[in-house]
Design a binder for these strands. Structure first.
Lengths: 304, 304
DNA sequence: CCATCGCCATGCATTCCTGCATGGATTGGC
DNA sequence: GCCAATCCATGCAGGAATGCATGGCGATGG
């Protein structure tokens, strides 16, 4: 329709225009870098590149600071207009996000539901107050196709092709035991010592046992006095001194009555975000998805 | 001064806004890519990234084309304003460049002065008609410090620290002989055969001889019957059949009465642009500098 | 007059982005 | 109903942009 329009005149790098605008307003590259959350060399190079792109000298490099040339001054008006329109874009965008409403269900393991999701929910309040969040705490692999949840947080990439998945980070877990249980057990200094210990098991225990054996920890089914599909039950069993529990370090380290058994032996496992293809096009689901994708990595790396 | 201003609202990637604008106006990613001279995957990723950055769904992916969502429609107004301001920036910039005037002197070797500079001058007419260009054809290393020229085109990086230099490309040269001289000389199939030949030499001939010997061509001072500092004289000597001449391939191949001696043995040498630091801040010099930096690489690679 | 501070320029390792080639999906024509 | 054309999504390799650390320079205050 508008294909008659000529876009050649907007082909220059708009980010360089932004660098020029902020630098001119702030008066120096360093100040502009601080304002934009970038570094001074980056902004300096962007401004230089814009000068080469336009074939103009915008700043006079004079000693300490930069001074706008006549050409730069005349461009400032137009660049300011771009900046004001950009503010409009930003405000309108956040307004649209604020206006989004509806219901979004996220499923995660019990541990993550109680540990991570509250922080996510708090952020969601600020970004999109109209969205109500439902947290489905479950360790079972919920079937997204049945609409039991819109987004799932999992530890593996799903194989279904009509699901989209994004790896958002990595978490770390290790063995924990209650202080009194560890006393009864005696000193553990080596993975081989764990042959004396007992573990709280998971419902699908063979997979868990195989993982332990791969790490050089010889275990037999007899060492699993209790199996449970609930991570909460799992953790409570460990706290009661029934056996060793395996939980994310962020949770286990925060429990005062629990201790790592082998502090240096940890298991790293990936965190995946999963949703339907179609659901990603739903505004409210997309907002929650993007929030999770942004917030989870830092929550996992900075347990805070 | 304006440090009170809050730039957080313009921190989003402006190029992604441009991608969104053109895509929405053109109606498809592919059309937008054609209009902007980019590729469809790039624009698709930029739009997706903008959606994640703003936390919005801008397009509904429906079958063939894309359809603006409500949020996208509402953003279009502000993004259009950015685009119009961008057109203003572009127009003002070209206007400023057009208005630039003054005198700029460029020094280059005789060969390049007559071979490359006319094409440069033609382009300069379009970009900045107010600038008058002086071409100083000289093979001597002109001293830029004495203001004999504003910009120099050289074959080596200068060592003076107060000069700025930019490598703009690479050129290729080889030996040429006139047809009748090559007949007198007999067949040349190997670099070692050149021991029978005579060469036109340069004023600083030791450097040239060393370069030949490094390439496995044994030469002695007795093989240089004529020395000259002028490349033009050098070439005329070769054309008259005095000996073998060494010139850029772009020049030598265009001469009908000359032939390459060893077509596959070529010398590659770099092309440097040199100017004063201070002169780079002069608008008119900067315009010519940027034009040279942009045009020379393609002139050297596509001799046309 | 000298020391200190802030600012800009440059070399280097890394990350991110871009372009290319391909696969999957849908629309329109015959 | 099938074919062809068009468009969007994704894996991959090369190149560009970014950040970090450093050096040089001018301005300011003692």
């Amino acid at each position: 329709m508008h294909s008659c329009m000529d876009w050649r005149s907007v082909t220059f790098d708009w980010n360089r225009a932004r660098a020029f605008l902020v630098t001119a307003e702030e008066g120096s590259l360093s100040a502009a870098a601080r304002a934009l959350g970038m570094t001074q060399p980056t902004l300096g190079r962007q401004v230089t590149a814009l000068e080469e792109e336009l074939g103009l000298v915008l700043f006079e490099r004079v000693g300490r600071g930069l001074v706008l040339t006549q050409a730069g001054t005349q461009l400032m008006g137009h660049v300011r207009a771009m900046g004001e329109a950009a503010v409009g874009v930003s405000l309108a965008a956040s307004g649209q996000a604020q206006a989004a409403s509806g219901h979004v269900a996220v499923t995660a393991s019990e541990v993550y539901s109680s540990w991570l999701m509250p922080r996510i929910a708090r952020r969601l309040r600020d970004v999109a107050p109209g969205i109500t969040l439902e947290v489905v705490a479950s360790n079972e692999i919920r079937d997204l196709r049945r609409r039991e949840a819109d987004i799932a947080i999992r530890n593996a990439r799903p194989e279904e092709p009509d699901l989209i998945a994004k790896r958002v980070g990595e978490d770390e877990g290790t063995f924990y035991g209650s202080i009194d249980y560890l006393e009864r057990l005696g000193p553990i200094t080596d993975p081989a010592d764990l042959a004396r210990a007992e573990f709280i098991g998971f419902a699908d225990n063979t997979q868990f046992m195989e993982a332990l054996q791969k790490r050089g920890i010889p275990v037999t089914p007899a060492q699993f006095p209790v199996l449970t599909s609930s991570h909460t039950v799992h953790w409570e069993m460990a706290r009661m001194g029934v056996g060793l529990g395996t939980v994310p370090c962020g949770l286990g380290d925060a429990a005062p009555e629990m201790r790592r058994v082998l502090p240096d032996v940890t298991f790293r496992f990936p965190i995946w975000l999963v949703a339907h293809r179609e659901l990603r096009t739903s505004p409210r689901v997309r907002i929650v998805w993007d929030l999770l994708a942004e917030a989870l990595p830092e929550l996992l790396s900075h347990p805070e």
